[in-house]
């Protein structure tokens, strides 16, 4: 099992310093109550704010009954995968709009499992999701570097044509298949 050794050492040092110089009683609250905005929620909340202030749909190019892509005036793209048969068109449209993307249907039997992520890329989070629509997501192209491909995996329940979950990660090589749930942020209804 991989160990984040640098993190382990730095945390040990911080704890040692705290043990050597304990905080005054007033400040020594239960850290469980010293909560922060979690990274995941922060990202989604930021996306929600952006939706509220951005003038939507500067370009409505690429709309079809199965998918839609709109470009916002902050440079981000909002994709909406409405049906499974829209995946190829959506992929093509994203490429046209400057995003190197590959869209796969989640396959639990995929022998290669989860494709390797570009090391260290999880903190860039090029995609944020909308709480109320699992097929809809905001893509920030400036968080995708040269040589990287945004892999998007959509999952469908048996007999349903609308995705119930979409996840993403940045990859260097696009796999032939992938299991679902590959990202650090996963959209679920």
């Amino acid at each position: 099992m991989n160990t984040p050794t640098g993190f382990k050492q730095r945390l040990a040092s911080e704890l040692s310093a705290m043990a050597t110089h304990p905080a005054p009683a007033q400040a020594a609250r239960n850290p469980a109550r010293r909560l922060r905005l979690p990274f995941m929620i922060a990202t989604v909340a930021a996306a929600a704010v952006a939706v509220a202030v951005v003038v939507p749909a500067l370009s409505g190019a690429g709309d079809s009954p199965a998918y839609a892509v709109t470009q916002e005036n902050d440079g981000s793209l909002v994709m909406d995968l409405k049906r499974g048969d829209g995946m190829p068109g959506l992929e093509k449209q994203l490429k046209k709009m400057g995003v190197r993307a590959a869209i796969l249907k989640g396959d639990e039997d995929c022998a290669t499992g989860i494709p390797p992520m570009v090391p260290g890329s999880s903190q860039r989070e090029p995609v944020t999701y909308f709480d109320d629509d699992p097929g809809k997501a905001r893509i920030n192209p400036d968080r995708i570097r040269d040589g990287e491909t945004l892999l998007i995996v959509a999952e469908f329940r048996n007999g349903e044509d609308t995705p119930f979950a979409v996840s993403d990660r940045l990859v260097l090589n696009v796999p032939a298949c992938s299991v679902g749930g590959i990202g650090t942020l996963v959209a679920h209804p």
Partner: peptide, 16 residues
Amino acid sequence: ARLNGHRLLDEEDIAA
């Protein structure tokens, strides 16, 4: 937070 764990991460830690 008094101790934000994520600020203790470097790229190798994140990859691990």
